[in-house]
Design a protein around this nucleic acid. Structure first.
Lengths: 151, 151
DNA sequence: TATTGTTATACTCTATAACTATA
DNA sequence: TATAGTTATAGAGTATAACAATA
């Protein structure tokens, strides 16, 4: 548009900049995704938790918080929101009464399996105009990025 | 570690899931980057602004906010922080006295050109253990992701 | 004592609304 | 009137600290 972005300032080594470029790209895309997210959509964390419970069955708060690398209070808040909407229910763990297990409701399971919640029209539009090769690169990178994030 | 993540639930079409997978990966990685960020480090937005001013010269608040897809108040806050640290200075635009131009100080230019600020040890460690081919995929994807975010 | 979970509180980043100053 | 920028305020998402209940 109006941007001299193609200019490179001082032939930098791409490898040195790999981390910086990735960080910048992820930061920018995240902000865009956050802002373009449609009304009434579940937050990313909430959605991830719901999907996880749907796929792997009931889990405790500590398990969920460890998996997502968030603190217990953060995860408490997230599951409270899911519970408030009616997508999950709490039940005491019969084996260990300190624990609380979270289980998707019928509605929660339906949402998680429909894939409806996962969609983001804004992003889908952007991806649609890429070449198949470019989409392949992004598919591969998504796996790598997720592995990095989970490590 | 302890995760049955390799299991796939119901052979889903990868193309259909491309957006969902990318969104999930970006969300998770962003949270990790945000949390692992070392003390006293500039925020991503502030860093991006400083780098941009360094590369392309003085710009107004509106130009900066449009480029980063943030509101004027958000950008005001960001440049105020940069100014408070002493990395940029404000100066009135001689042509249009409504505008304020932001210019990096010597310190700001030094930081922007050193690449020091851009580094993230946590991320660099993760990238270092990838294969060259995987790093190539990420390098390519970073460009695509940035293009998507900027579109 | 250690672990599980909750509540209270605060910080960061972003937004919208209301305002001032200049074009 | 329209545009550039600031200030006030609010909301989401995260964290740490202090607490209650159970192992």
């Amino acid at each position: 548009m109006d941007d001299p972005v193609t200019t490179h300032s001082g032939g930098v080594d791409p490898d040195t900049d790999l981390g910086a470029n990735l960080r910048s790209a992820v930061g920018r895309l995240h902000r865009r995704l956050f802002n373009e997210r449609p009304e009434g959509t579940l937050r990313d964390t909430a959605l991830a938790v719901l999907t996880r419970l749907h796929k792997y069955g009931p889990q405790s708060l500590t398990e969920l918080s460890r998996h997502d690398h968030v603190t217990l209070p953060s995860m408490t808040r997230t599951v409270n929101q899911l519970a408030a909407i009616g997508y999950v229910v709490r039940s005491p763990d019969p084996q260990d009464r300190r624990k609380v297990l979270f289980t998707p409701t019928a509605e929660g399971n339906q949402l998680a399996s429909s894939g409806r919640a996962q969609r983001n029209a804004w992003l889908d539009d952007k991806l649609a105009v890429l070449t198949p090769e470019e989409r392949e690169v992004i598919a591969h990178a998504s796996i790598l990025l997720r592995r990095i994030a989970d490590a």
